[in-house]
């Protein structure tokens, strides 16, 4: 952390989420309370099915809570309809996926330009910003490469640059290093952490890998839909 007072990007209070209804209902999250501040990187850990991706989706305005409150940048998302949730995502949230989820037919620069133009940027300014973002993630020389021409690490860097498009206040990563070797994955996590500190955005990363989590500013572990250690700090968050 850089010592400045950190604004809260996400506030979760007594969050509950149930999938389905009736006899088939599944309680995915129970009484979750959590705060993520701008400028910090938080790692969400837990076993498979523990609810960490569900929590990430709630924070990303992809799921509405069935209990409790979730505020993204101060706005309670409980009452938002689908269109408003989509608008929140577009304006304030960037996603980084495990499988990169790039568009196979678009070059790196087109991918980022597309994200910017979706946010209303003009084609010309979006093009300039896309080039800048690619340089920021170390891919200045890969602007015109399609995903098939990039390595796994390079693809994830393009995905990060896309997530950064339009300077969102919240970046959510779903196992962003799971498909990468440790060295490449470490580079990706350090890049995300650096961006969090440099751009004052909040970064939340779901991971199974303790080595990845140790690079975050804070680690939150979830098990069976409940947070186990809300205040655990990594051993070496340098």
């Amino acid at each position: 952390m850089n010592g400045q007072p950190a604004a809260e990007a996400v506030t979760v209070e007594e969050l509950g989420l149930v999938y389905g209804a009736g006899a088939t209902a599944v309680q995915a999250l129970t009484g979750v309370a959590l705060t993520v501040r701008r400028g910090e990187m938080l790692a969400l850990m837990g076993p498979s099915g523990s609810g960490k991706t569900t929590l990430l989706m709630v924070m990303g305005c992809l799921l509405r809570p069935t209990a409790g409150r979730v505020r993204i940048l101060g706005r309670d998302i409980g009452g938002l309809d689908q269109a408003a949730m989509a608008a929140m995502r577009l304006a304030h949230v960037g996603f980084v996926f495990q499988s990169y989820n790039l568009f196979p037919a678009l070059t790196a620069v087109e991918t980022i330009r597309l994200a910017l133009e979706l946010k209303g940027w003009s084609s010309a300014t979006a093009g300039e910003e896309a080039v800048r973002l690619l340089a920021e993630v170390g891919l200045a020389d890969k602007q015109h490469s399609i995903p098939a021409q990039l390595s796994g690490g390079q693809k994830q860097r393009v995905a990060i640059a896309r997530a950064l498009a339009g300077a969102p206040e919240l970046i959510l990563g779903d196992e962003p290093t799971a498909a990468l070797d440790w060295q490449t994955g470490q580079g990706i996590i350090l890049l995300l952490r650096g961006l969090a500190r440099q751009d004052r955005c909040a970064v939340v990363v779901v991971t199974h890998d303790p080595r990845v989590a140790e690079l975050a500013d804070r680690i939150v572990t979830i098990d069976d839909g409940r947070i186990c250690n809300p205040e655990r700090m990594p051993h070496a968050a340098s």
């Binding site: 929140m88 304006a91 979706l118």
Partner: peptide, 9 residues
């Protein structure tokens, strides 16, 4: 799905 997740209408 990715576009929708990104917030594309």
């Amino acid at each position: 799905g990715t576009l929708r997740a990104m917030g594309a209408p």
